[in-house]
């Protein structure tokens, strides 16, 4: 990212997309930051054995 883009990012109001844990979005929202929450959890709740199986079964 160029120096000017970084400067713009820091000078303009933040617009945030938060993926996963909702607590981060709530904190930002309470501070007046525009935030879009995206519900997301790791496949199979993070169980790597099941996730590995799912990857072979075509989801």
């Amino acid at each position: 990212m160029s120096e000017s883009k970084v400067k713009t990012l820091l000078e303009e109001p933040l617009r945030v997309v938060n993926i996963g844990l909702e607590g981060f979005a709530k904190e930002l929202d309470q501070q007046g930051v525009k935030v879009i929450q995206v519900d997301w959890t790791p496949p199979a709740g993070g169980d790597t054995k099941l996730a590995n199986l799912l990857s072979k079964l075509g989801t």
Binding site: T41, P43, A44, G45, L50, A51, L54, L57, G58, T59
Partner: peptide
């Protein structure tokens, strides 16, 4: 069942 397990 694959989608149920994947998405939780």
């Amino acid at each position: 069942i694959r989608l149920v397990v994947e998405t939780g």
